[in-house]
Design a protein around this nucleic acid. Structure first.
Length: 566
RNA sequence: CGGGGCGUAGCUCAGCUUGGUAGAGCGCUUGCUUCGGGAGCAAGAGGUCGCAGGUUCGAAUCCUGUCGCCCCGACCA
């Protein structure tokens, strides 16, 4: 492609509402243009990147035996009513009506549609297993779209759905997809990590997320310093230490703590570490009443874990402040497990400390020297908190460190949730009807491009890995106004590269070197060949990799250039 | 959904408090000079001031409504 015929649309100025580096660079490099909140046009240069990602995904899905199809983006409400999700999905789902006033949605995902098709077509165990996928535009009306295509409302996703006769078949395909995802992320050139994730579904089936590691990531990952353990903090479990509860050494006393409502305030006021405090959160219980959750002062509640606890309401909901005050007769800043009017469940860590500080269940007062067993009953214990850096790794090897990641893919075993709800059944060898097991596997294709930029850029712009670069190499002739030789050599090399099947860009705009180099760096072309009189005098081109500090001289031949690209 | 902010040239923004014929930089066009890391000079093109209504002799500016966009928060105990 000749830059004289290619709309580059690069800018020096940073667009006002771009917060993270990938969003800024994608706008500055002219990869995308915003149309509305969470809506982006992929410009020609950006689309080339998107298509590269897409093609890698397609290649590997095909290699893994999945079958590509394309489902409509607009879906009839009936299917969603059948699965029960029409009422469950919130405002995130864009609902629309056609001219007959019939309800539709713009698909946020396609479990219902694929299950519907499969129940029409698949009758026999001989037709299973099967794995269908598509690369399709989705729409999710995010409460807060941001970060450009990283969290857009309309985005491109690869979603795959597999169907199996039994759980073993599903587990095997899950591993197959896991391997395919590993190849996809590796080929794209991303530094990634597969982590255990919250499946959000009954049955405890496996679920993993593939994260591209980057500081701008919206997810926190807990990984072991020594072992292989890696999990999204939402899903990272914690265990009791196994150490016996220390015996009480202090007497229980009530201390006046006027106005000290938060753990931090109390900790400072009484000069005790946060780890020596127990806080009590009040949430809705499964039986409709209230239940207290005791956590160590420095720990945070994991709402997903809480919602899974049989005695806690699901979905998770904090108690109303008024209800708490009615039950305790004091403000929420002074709650504690001692003389507590409601049942209490303690997090493992909170149940392991002695002589702790906690609210006195009366205004402006806390207790010091409180102890489980002596001052209040030993509560039921459970894993209810967020894992934190420095915790022992759940697999017993090393400690936990936290990383930030961008969720690029998610694979999980759905089980029979949709096949059952939508009445999909097939006949097995014995002629008996069974409800197939289902798996589902997603990749955020458009997000992937942004995530790679987060990982791979410098002060001058994007640095594309070869695999998804919009062009492999840019040929930049210098001083073409004075040197017809440089111009000719550039034209010739460009033509040779094209003939050799290399995706090459020729900067034939006749600009001064500064702007040409700046554009080439900004749009992140991995390889650059500069052709000028100086080099040509010695039959040399100048080669520079986007990542290299300095350029080097190479023979002015196609072969020498190809050798550098290899 | 709650709170805050912003809509003026393709982009980034000033002008609004105190109403009086629309501004800058970047980008764009033309010419001359320049030419190895975003050049200089000169001359130009380009805006229904988000939209609707109101106040006024007169509104980008004041008032009301509306739409769009951005940021923060959505939980603490």
């Amino acid at each position: 492609m000749r830059l004289s015929r290619f709309p580059l649309a690069t800018t020096k100025e940073t667009p006002a509402d771009a917060e993270i580096i990938s969003h800024r660079l994608m706008l500055r490099a002219g990869l995308i243009r915003k149309l509305g909140a969470g809506l982006y046009t992929w410009m020609p240069l950006g689309l080339r990147v998107l298509r590269k990602v897409e093609q890698i995904v397609r290649d590997e899905m095909n290699r893994a035996g999945a079958l590509e199809l394309l489902m409509p983006s607009v879906q009839p409400a009936e299917l969603w009513q059948e699965s029960g999700r029409w009422d469950v999905m919130g405002a995130e789902m864009l609902r629309i009506k056609d001219r007959h006033k019939n309800d539709f949605c713009y698909g946020p995902t396609h479990e219902e549609v694929i299950t519907h098709h499969v129940r029409q077509d698949i009758r026999s165990y001989k037709q299973l297993p099967i794995n269908y996928y598509q690369i399709q535009t989705k729409f999710r009306d995010e409460r807060r779209p941001r970060f450009g295509v990283m969290r857009a409302r309309e985005f491109l996703m690869k979603d795959a759905y597999s169907f199996h006769m039994d759980a073993e078949g599903l587990a095997a395909e899950y591993q197959n997809m896991r391997a395919a995802y590993t190849r996809i992320f590796s080929r794209i050139g991303a530094d990634f990590r597969a982590v255990k994730a919250d499946s959000g579904n009954i049955g405890g089936a496996a679920s993993e997320e593939f994260h591209i590691l980057a500081g701008a990531g919206e997810d926190l990952l807990a990984v072991s310093t020594e072992g292989d353990y890696a999990a999204n903090v939402e899903a990272a479990e914690t265990h009791p230490s196994g150490r016996p509860l220390p015996a009480p050494t202090a007497a229980l006393e009530t201390v006046s703590t006027p106005g000290q409502k938060t753990c931090e305030q109390v900790s400072r006021f009484l000069n005790v570490p946060l780890t020596g405090k127990v806080k009590l959160l009040v949430v809705k219980a499964a039986d409709g009443g209230l239940i207290g959750i005791a956590l160590r002062g420095d720990h945070e509640l994991n709402e997903i874990k809480a919602a899974k606890h049989p005695r806690i309401a699901s979905p998770f909901e904090m108690a109303k402040i008024e209800d708490v005050q009615a039950a305790f007769g004091c403000e929420v800043g002074y709650l504690g497990p001692v003389n507590c009017p409601i049942p209490v469940i303690a997090d493992f860590a909170a149940a392991e400390i002695a002589d702790f500080v906690c609210g006195a269940n009366q205004n402006d007062a806390h207790l010091r020297g409180a102890n489980w067993g002596r001052d209040c009953a030993l509560p039921e214990t459970a894993d209810l908190r967020m894992i934190v850096e420095g915790d022992p790794s759940p697999d017993g090897r090393g400690t936990i460190k936290l990383l930030r990641g961008i969720e690029g893919g998610h694979i999980f075993q759905l089980g029979q949730k949709y096949t059952q709800a939508m009445g999909l059944s097939v006949l097995d060898e014995k002629g008996e009807a069974i409800t197939p097991q289902m798996g589902c596997y997603g990749i955020g294709v458009s997000r992937m491009a942004a995530a790679v930029i987060e990982q791979s850029h410098d002060a001058n712009g994007i640095i594309w890995p070869d695999a998804i670069a919009p062009f492999r190499v840019i040929v930049t002739p210098i001083g073409t106004d004075k040197s017809p030789a440089a111009k000719e050599a550039a034209e010739q090399l460009y033509q040779q590269l094209i003939d050799a099947g290399v995706e090459a860009l020729l900067d034939d705009r006749g600009l001064r070197p500064g702007p040409m180099f700046a554009d080439a760096d900004l749009i992140g072309i991995p390889h650059r060949i500069v052709i000028g009189d100086k080099g040509l005098a010695n039959q040399q081109f100048e080669y520079k990799h986007r990542r290299a500090d300095k350029a080097e001289m190479i023979p002015a031949t196609l072969d020498a250039v190809l050798a550098k690209l290899a």
